[in-house]
Design a protein around this nucleic acid. Structure first.
Lengths: 249, 249
DNA sequence: TAAATAGTGTCTGTGAGACACTATATC
DNA sequence: GATATAGTGTCTCACAGACACTATTTA
């Protein structure tokens, strides 16, 4: 078979509606980018929300988001980073595309769609400048896969999706390092895994996994002082922050 | 801590750019939905492509796609299903959202974004009616993660993404059943796994995995005739077509 | 030395993969 | 019986989890 040409066998066939002139003449749905920002604070998974100051859903809490600025944003991820920077002052999070959400009903103004992202940050990383609307951004604790308030639009769905994705990936990746400061101990890291997955892990097995994944290095001479045996401090090896394990943690 | 209110401790803080009036006054990027349709034909993974009849990229091959029709499409997935139905006559595929793609350069006409989906179909399922533009739709063989021609827009990226996703999920799901007809044998199924993952699998281990995942049932009395021992025919248990295995296959 | 947590070693049950064996059809 | 593939049984090695043990600090 000629591999550089369309498969020849049960020949190419036409679609049933051949003549649909599918031009861009339809009303364009509104398109936004939303970012679910997650962090570990006080040993709990929390999400950064913004209180809406305008209709629709005025006064309701929402995930951070905004419109795409075609002249500023090179691509979707750039738009997400701009939103993070402008609305939360966050510069270098772990950022991953989550999913698209779009339908006729999520926004009362009409058909709208959003490209949702999720970001992980070390809480130390968030040094919010105090601004005019100091009450408009706040951390909310994740309870299960939700927060204790109704959210604007379909943001409850988006948040649930983000939390599920995070939990799923924590099972087989090193994502939790993005929730910790640059230097941390192995007991710290294990606590993050346990906190997010909500189950106990065996210390020995955990450390074997981490060791064989080979993405951390001890910081020579640095230990965390304590009134007991001090723990070795580690940092992520250069360029190896996000690792996929062979199997589950 | 009051779990129904924002976390109180390191107090809610304002974003650094508080006053961005982020209204919808920006030019709206163009938004489409694209569907990567994959099937197994002649024992090879193939993708259904359409030859573009209009600029841009006139004459180039592209993944099936189209604009969202706000008045017709309830949501993104409905738009994807409409495109499948209208442009390929496909009614009931396995359909999953893949990712969003959007930047300033993928479409020469300006900033555009697409919600990409991927669909799996049993080739028997595709009964394309012969239409006016019979040469405009064709199956192309996947070579690695690409096809043997340049694609329109960023469709090569989208295709690569779809193939990677499929291969990744085949490792730990029952997705390959969607590439087979309703009745099939275990050797058939194993061949699909081997074909997509491009590696040999042990018959015994494979069957143990399939058995414990418990998503197939033998069809009583039905066997595939052959000049050797005939194989038992199986079908998917009701509602259990897409199963996630405990570990990898 | 008591307390507390960091960190390591050992044992065992499970299960995946390798591979040999049995089963059942046609010719 | 020969041949070919379907389908099952067995063995072994690796490894995850359980758990016990050692190490190192402060008080």
């Amino acid at each position: 078979m000629n591999s550089r040409a369309p498969s020849s066998t049960p020949k190419p066939a036409a679609g049933s509606v051949a003549a649909t002139a599918d031009t861009a003449d339809f009303p364009r749905p509104s398109v936004t980018v939303d970012v679910v920002i997650l962090a570990l604070r006080e040993d709990r998974l929390q999400v950064l929300l913004m209180k809406r100051g305008a209709a629709p859903f005025r006064g309701a809490w929402a995930v951070l988001g905004g419109y795409i600025h075609p002249s500023e944003d090179a691509d979707l991820e750039a738009a997400a980073r701009r939103i993070l920077r402008q609305k939360a002052g966050i510069e270098t999070p772990y950022l991953e595309q989550l999913a698209g959400f779009g339908d006729a009903r999520r926004d009362p103004r009409g058909w709208s769609a959003t490209f949702a992202y999720f970001a992980l940050i070390a809480s130390e990383q968030l040094v919010l400048k105090q601004g005019a609307n100091a009450e408009q951004v706040a951390w909310w604790e994740i309870e299960g896969e939700r927060v204790g308030t109704a959210l604007a639009f379909d943001h409850a769905d988006i948040l649930t999706n983000a939390v599920k994705r995070l939990r799923a990936k924590v099972e087989y990746t090193s994502l939790p390092v993005h929730l910790l400061p640059a230097k941390f101990t192995l007991p710290d890291l294990q606590r993050v895994y346990e906190q997010i997955l909500d189950r106990h892990m065996d210390k020995s097995a955990f450390r074997k996994r981490i060791a064989e994944a080979d993405f951390l290095e001890p910081i020579p001479g640095e230990k965390r002082p304590a009134s007991n045996r001090p723990a070795q401090m580690y940092r992520v090896k250069r360029g190896r922050a996000t690792i996929f394990f062979d199997r589950t943690i």
